[in-house]
Write a protein that binds this DNA or RNA. Structure first.
Lengths: 163, 163
DNA sequence: CTCGATGCAAAATTTTTGCAGTCCC
DNA sequence: GGGACTGCAAAAATTTTGCATCGAG
């Protein structure tokens, strides 16, 4: 393992525990199970996905607890919310992300690609300066068709996005 | 009225009727009431807002018909969907918009500002070229706080955004 | 021990859908 | 007149919440 890869699950769980304690929140088995489930997931996941995986770790985890844990996880910065305009939201572990991420949503294979969009930091600053406001968050998404992408093999139809 | 202001409600209603006919859809009183309600609205509105206003024109309009009309209106290009990540969607009449619009969402006064972001056309093309896919739509949003904006008078707290 | 956290189920909220009746073309 | 369209209410689907109980500190 690379020495710079300090963001493995183990270390991150410690970071999460520290975050909970620092906020006066309790370190419960359910929260840790949810955290582990989230951080083990390599891709985007929904609240329901997370519930299912967390229950494999601790079957006492309830849906309500997952929904109550998600805001804590996103506030900690360990998990990122990815809202692509569906009726449910996606989430994703924040591993070694340093630059702003945009999403490319493929309508054909129903996949979400994360891509670097560092210029968005400049854009946010520009908008903020022009209107004299304080940027809280930004979102940049491109919805597209990938028929050509499919032939190149990058986008395999039937990607494992959930229902 | 400016001679270039060809997009007044009257003309636009004709455009809508033509669109319906061209698609083999029927021109009903309810659809026209919904169209008028939408086009008279100066700001962003929700499906529920639209229902309420459409009923002032034709009180036989039902919620279901509003929800069934919205996809038709957006497909016609006369109305634009503005999803800022809440549990309900906003819509807005497309008046004299020619360039790509980004949104600035103010967390303090709960208002949505539409701003020109012409460079997004370049961005979409860049992404498309790099990944060889066909851009369907794009979304760019900045969520911000406007405490300073308030003092400048641009953002009055208590703007009339719905609950 | 104490009070924050949890599970369960009911509620809330927005949008969709089935069906019988209506009215545009 | 025929079939698209509509209204109504029930259904869907995701997220939130009240309450009794549990357990972390």
């Amino acid at each position: 393992m690379d020495a710079t890869d300090t963001k493995n699950s183990k270390n991150m769980q410690e970071t999460f525990k520290d975050f909970l304690s620092s906020k006066g929140l309790r370190v419960t088995n359910q929260r840790l199970a949810i955290f582990d489930a989230a951080f083990d997931h390599p891709d985007h996941f929904t609240a329901e996905d997370l519930l299912e995986r967390a229950r494999e770790i601790d079957d006492s985890v309830s849906r309500a607890t997952v929904y109550r844990a998600l805001p804590i996880l996103t506030e900690s910065g360990l998990i990122r919310e990815v809202d692509v305009g569906r009726d449910y939201k996606f989430y994703m572990a924040n591993r070694n992300v340093t630059t702003f991420q945009a999403q490319v949503i493929c309508l054909d294979c129903d996949k979400i690609f994360e891509i670097d969009a560092p210029f968005m930091e400049w854009y946010g600053k520009t908008v903020a300066d022009k209107l004299s406001l304080k940027v809280e968050s930004q979102r940049l998404q491109v919805t597209a068709h990938c028929s050509e992408l499919q032939s190149s093999g990058l986008c395999k139809r039937g990607g494992k996005r959930n229902s």
